[in-house]
Design a protein around this nucleic acid. Structure first.
Ligand SMILES: [Mn+2]
Ligand SMILES: [Mn+2]
Ligand SMILES: [Zn+2]
Ligand SMILES: [Zn+2]
Lengths: 136, 136
DNA sequence: ACATTAAATCGTAATCATTCTTAATAAAAA
DNA sequence: TTTTTATTAAGAATGATTACGATTTAATGT
């Protein structure tokens, strides 16, 4: 996922192109890590004084719906990152300090034969937490 | 973990025995599933009119500290369940509707050789979500 | 370029889970 | 039974997120 194809996806789905949306996408493409709504706001409000939290949240949700961003929840707050380029199903190593990530190619679900016959499995989450080299 | 040994753990660590604490523990021992703070409150406020949310949260945190309860976060709210009897490190299948759980004995971390040399790994989370037989 | 229309944004209030504060209460110890 | 200290109630405060009505702006057609 990159800014250009994200903007195209917006247009293809009937959403408008705005400077704020483009700047949000650019931010995510530059910072390859999980960002909170607050971090996104702070990064943009120099250029847009009076930028509303509502705008941030609305667009983050939209981007998530369009699979431009992926989301995780950490310490009671949502964090978003640019969807990975690869289509390969995978998981992440996440820095608890700065949100930086590394890929984990293995998916535990592949190995585990869930004989959970009476359980209708709809999803799973596998995340490994720690601190990146810069944050240790 | 059971009510008796949980109460003992409280006493051993210098905490007092109160009816509310005992009733909270009894609730968790009866309902073998993840409960939210709200659910705990609702279950006890028949017996204790005017029971405070603060009391619930304070005791939930205390129980978590003493490893009497284990916690997970789902849809932006914490959910607690009685710690599993087994000492064996394991994970859970969680019903998104009612919080019922099943054990998953396999831990993905055992298999994965994390060559994340520059990452200081401090923890991980592996949860499988779905709907239990009663909730489908 | 201009007008029209629907989407996007602002500003702010509301909501929801959780935490904090202070005074009153109850459990354990003396 | 008195004292000590932990626990609780009540409600205010917080922090993240969502909702709302009014205003602005992007896209579209003229
Ligand atoms: Mn997977
Ligand atoms: Mn594990
Ligand atoms: Zn880091
Ligand atoms: Zn269920």
């Amino acid at each position: 996922m990159d800014v250009v194809s994200a903007l195209k996806k917006l247009k293809d789905n009937g959403y408008k192109h705005t400077d704020k949306r483009e700047d949000m996408l650019t931010l995510f493409s530059e910072e390859k890590r999980y960002l909170s709504a607050k971090e996104v706001l702070e990064n943009l409000q120099d250029e847009y004084p009076g930028l509303s939290f509502d705008t941030i949240y609305r667009n983050l949700s939209l981007f998530e719906e369009l699979e431009i961003l992926e989301v995780t929840e950490l310490n009671g707050e949502k964090r978003f990152r640019f969807s990975c380029e690869t289509n390969h199903h995978h998981h992440h190593l996440i820095c608890l300090q700065c949100g930086k990530t590394k890929h984990i190619d293995v998916c535990p679900m592949e190995d585990i034969t869930l004989k959970a016959s009476d359980f209708n499995v709809t999803g799973h989450k596998f995340e490994v937490y720690g601190y990146c080299s810069a944050c240790q």
